[in-house]
Each structure stands twice: as structure tokens, then as C-alpha cells.
Design a protein around this nucleic acid. Structure first.
Lengths: 203, 203
DNA sequence: ATATTTGTTGACCATTTGGTTAAACTTTTT
DNA sequence: AAAAAGTTTAACCAAATGGTCAACAAATAT
């Protein structure tokens, strides 16, 4: 049980804003709704964050900073390719099962405002493919994996891990699964995805 | 003059609404903006579609009806599994390169309003996995492909094909690609994705 | 030709929305 | 204990927004 009085207003606002923004997006969210969710007066939102835009950016960057390190584990750790794929698929899916709205939220807003990426790139530890590319090219030339471009493999890894969360409502419909059944399917993917990728790139 | 006006106002509105909704979503779109885009008076929007909600639903269902048949080609055609994967990956990516907005638009609104799926399910030809599942189970038992659940394979096929469009802004940043370079990468995926999948499921 | 239906517009309206302000209350500093 | 600084609230406000309406125009029927 979380005691609300132990959490500062500023933090309560950020949490409430996260829930509302994740659910409704920047344009769909209402400042009054966020205030209600945080159980504080609307003026406090502006006292701490000045404007809706700044509050949104605070939420967005917090969310993005949860995602980036996981991507970096694939791109910039010194694990073997197989270990990267196995660990990322397992860790990412586990994490996202707890925050299922996160990928959708981030991609939604980036699609709406592509220039926002440029701002993100300038921050520290923005994931970059360069080291991963070297690793893949080396593995290919050493015939440890079949020939494949690092970019394509990287897109595949992210696609297989992230899409099941973004596409959840549609996929549930297509495969006729209840929430519970779909969650079970996602859980299986913790190992299934890695197996699928490795089977494809091994020689 | 008579022939020049062969695009009815109703159609102009739908096209304009599509462009605006695609870009800004339901809550971000403004009726005035749609009217401006269609170069007609705002009252006409209400004359033809009564409300923003109904205009949105008209646009959404039009968009969804472009997507559904392609999914059905995977789920309910009588091609072999390999042909399905090859054809779908090629056709879908080709189609989406012309309509890159579509998957993001649809998934965004379904995530925002998951109950909307229930409405869609009731329409004709809503994609359903059942036939595909039979096909996969048969292929597995005949040892034509390695053991894999139809649901997982289906999610993988969609993920690999759809995600590169939804995740474009982020992926462009990660792999450091210009719009032109990214488009090139997407073009390669027309065959790359099928190869990736087939390599993974063959025995 | 005229009446009637259909299509189109500008002016207007009620409500919502992000944001401001001044005052009150609380905590910290002096 | 007084002053200062920080926090919280209710009351407002201007702009934006979805939507209505009456008038006008164009097409169609009589």
C-alpha cells in the first residue's frame, strides 16, 4: 500500500500525468483530468511544470529513459550475439508486461512529432547501432552467423519484441484471445522470440 | 467546370479528414483544420457526417478495410505457407511504402479505445486465425516446418512487416539513417523479411 | 417557369480548456 | 515570534472548439 502523503506533490503529478498521457496521448489528455488523477488542484500542475507541454516532455523523457538502456544492452554491451538476443527478449518482454502502454505511448508521440527524435538524439546514451554493426559484420565474416545486415537484424529484434505490445488490441482480435490468454502468449515469447531469431541466423 | 468538379464535397471531406486524422489522431485533429484542408466550410463537415466522432469512424473504417484483406491473404488463402510469407511480406511492404501512415493510425486509435475492436470484429471478413492455425498444425505434424505455434508465427509475421513503419522515427534515429536511406532499408525488407522467417521455421 | 429539394456558407453559441492571479495556508529561516 | 519562502487552493479568463442555425445558392422535380 502506497501512502500518498509520503509522495511529494511533484511526484504524484508526474505519476498521474504518466497514466493519463500513456492512455490518451498528449492531445487527448486534459490538465484537469491529470489533476484529478493526482488528487491535487489543477494550479499545482502549472506551479510545478508551467505548461502542459513541459509536463508532457517530463513524462516523455522519463518514459524514454526507461526504454533506452534496454536497447543499449543490445547495441553496446559486450555479450555475444546469442546472449544479447536471449537476454533482451526475456528482459524486455518481462519489463513490458509491467508497462504495456509504454512502447505505444513513445512511438505514438514520435510519429506525431518526428522532430522530437532530434532532441532525444542529443541526450546521453541515445542508442546507436554502430558497435552492434561491427559485431554483426565480424560474426558474419567469421561465419558464426549467416550473412545478414546489422540494420535488418536489429529492426527484426525490436519488431519481434515490441510489436506484440503495440499491436495487442488488434492481435487479440485476430487470434481470438482473451486478455488472459494473450498475456500467456506474451509470456511464452520471452523465450520464443530469441529461439525464432537464432534459428534464422545460425548457420 | 462540370467535369472539373467530379470530386464531390463528401469525398473531398473524407480525404482531407483522412490526412488530418492520420497525422494528428482523433483528439489532435480539429474540425476547422479538416475543413481548411478540404477547402470547404466547416458546416459542411457536419452536414455530411453530423459529428467529429462519426467522421472519424468513417475514416477509420475506410482505413481498416484497406488493411484487413491483406491480413486475410495470410490467414484465409490457399497458398502454401512459404508463398504466403513471401507474398505477404512483398505486398504488404510495397503497399505500406505508399501509405506509411496507415498502421500507426489504426493501432494508435485501437490502443486508445480497445472496445472499438469489438465493433470491427462484427464486420465481414474480419481476419481470424482459425484456418491458418489448421494449416500450420498440419505442416508441423507432416514435418514440413519445425514445431511452432500458429499464434506465435502469425504475430512474428505481422511484427516483422508492420513494425518498421510504426517504429520508423525511432529506428531512423537508432540506425542513423536519413529518410532516403531508411526507405531503401524498407525496400530491401520486401524479400528480407520472408527469408528471415522461412530460415527460422524450415527444418 | 416555379416549387422543392439538396448543397453551401457566415455568423453565432455553449462548453471546454490551458493558463493566470491573488490570497491562504504551511514550513523554514532569521 | 516574526519574516520569508514554499505550497496549495478557489475564482477567473481568454482562446479554442465542436456544433447549430438561418439564409442563400444550385440543382431537380413539377
Amino acid at each position: 500500500m502506497i501512502n500518498n502523503k509520503d509522495i511529494s506533490a511533484e511526484e504524484k503529478i508526474l505519476n498521474a500525468a504518466r497514466r493519463i498521457f500513456e492512455n490518451k496521448g498528449m492531445s487527448g489528455a486534459r490538465m484537469q483530468e491529470i489533476a484529478d488523477e493526482a488528487k491535487i488542484n489543477k494550479s499545482l500542475l502549472h506551479y510545478y511544470y508551467r505548461s502542459k507541454q513541459l509536463l508532457f516532455e517530463a513524462v516523455f523523457k522519463t518514459a524514454f529513459n526507461k526504454l533506452a538502456p534496454q536497447i543499449n544492452l543490445v547495441l553496446n554491451s559486450d555479450q555475444s550475439i546469442c546472449d544479447k538476443i536471449i537476454n533482451f527478449s526475456n528482459n524486455y518482454t518481462s519489463f513490458m508486461l509491467k508497462h504495456p502502454y509504454l512502447p505505444n505511448f513513445i512511438l505514438q508521440e514520435l510519429n506525431r512529432n518526428p522532430d522530437f527524435v532530434k532532441e532525444l538524439i542529443s541526450i546521453d546514451n541515445f542508442p546507436n547501432i554502430i558497435n552492434f554493426k561491427i559485431q554483426i559484420e565480424k560474426a558474419v565474416s567469421e561465419e558464426k552467423i549467416r550473412p545478414i545486415e546489422a540494420e535488418q537484424l536489429f529492426i527484426n529484434i525490436l519488431a519481434l519484441n515490441i510489436f506484440p505490445f503495440i499491436g495487442a488490441p488488434l492481435l487479440k482480435g485476430f487470434i481470438n484471445a482473451s486478455d488472459k490468454e494473450y498475456k500467456k502468449i506474451l509470456n511464452k515469447r520471452k523465450t520464443e522470440v530469441a529461439e525464432f531469431i537464432i534459428k534464422s541466423i545460425k548457420l
